[in-house]
């Protein structure tokens, strides 16, 4: 065999090439009716194993994608579900506020509590309503459950309220019915958190646990009848003179998200029947 033929191919190679080319052209020239059965026969015989492998790979890929998608959806639902209790609580608050608003009828403005981070949040509250909305200093701030505090400073679009939890806060109070009067201030208890104390109750008058304490209307700041809290028990007594009672608050400032600021025109009103006492801060042992 010549060197050139050895290196670049023999006659047999050329014949093989030509034969294959001719067969390819024959395949190309085949009518559609013949092409389909041949292709089908190849797919179901020689190509069946590799097509099965490819099918398995496609299935595995789809399952992986499906798993990733399902995991993402599950995570999204879990995240959404985490906010459900918070949304329910806010919804309940807003419904209570709507009911209170319809009962009050006039002389108030709604405000959102813009809770801040830090230890002072809960002692003073930033409200979303200000001078432009009619808010004035010393305006009472209430929630569906009862008294929250009093406005201390007013800006055009916001205001700052002193909550009853503030150490300087005082409100003239009375037991429902107006037979006993006293002064309510905050009391920070170590175990039970923010509480109130009702001072100046005559020694001879006993208050049963669960008795509701409301604003008296004295002093010209708060209208009469806004729930403040309910009696928990005797805190201290000075023998023969007066007793101080511990109160569960009707509203805890840190838990409210929406409030109402009353206008001065409501100061002389009596609001006893306007409040939803079931919206007050729940506590075991509290008698409503």
């Amino acid at each position: 065999m010549a060197i050139g033929v050895e290196r670049y191919g023999t006659r047999a190679d050329t014949i093989a090439l030509l034969a294959c080319l001719v067969l390819s052209l024959v395949a190309l020239a085949l009518p559609e009716a013949l092409r389909r059965p041949i292709a089908g026969a190849l797919r179901t015989s020689v190509l069946a194993p590799v097509l099965a492998v490819e099918r398995q790979a496609v299935t595995a890929r789809e399952q992986r994608q499906s798993t990733v998608r399902l995991r993402a959806e599950r995570d999204s639902f879990a995240l959404a579900a985490a906010f459900v209790p918070e949304l329910r609580a806010e919804n309940a608050q807003l419904r209570s506020l709507l009911r209170l608003g319809s009962r009050l009828g006039y002389g108030f403005v709604d405000a959102e509590v813009l809770h801040q981070t830090g230890l002072s949040d809960g002692l003073t509250l930033v409200l979303s309503a200000g001078r432009r909305a009619g808010v004035v200093p010393m305006a009472p701030v209430i929630a569906p459950g009862g008294l929250v505090g009093m406005v201390v400073s007013v800006d055009p679009h916001s205001s700052v309220a002193m909550a009853w939890t503030h150490p300087d806060f005082r409100v003239s109070a009375m037991v429902e019915g107006g037979r006993l009067f006293g002064i309510v201030a905050s009391r920070r208890a170590e175990a039970s958190g923010e509480m109130m104390e009702l001072r100046g109750i005559p020694y001879r008058e006993g208050l049963a646990p669960g008795t509701t304490v409301v604003t008296s209307g004295l002093g010209g700041v708060y209208p009469r009848g806004i729930p403040i809290g309910s009696v928990q028990g005797v805190l201290s007594e000075s023998a023969g003179w007066e007793r101080t009672y511990l109160l569960w608050p009707a509203v805890h400032p840190a838990q409210v998200s929406h409030v109402m600021v009353l206008f001065p025109s409501r100061t002389r009103d009596t609001l006893t029947t306007d409040f939803d006492t079931t919206a007050a801060v729940a506590h075991p042992g509290t008698v409503r």
Partner: peptide, 12 residues
Amino acid sequence: AVTPTAFGSMAF
């Protein structure tokens, strides 16, 4: 056989 649009073209 798996892309039978022009059967024979890939063979060629």
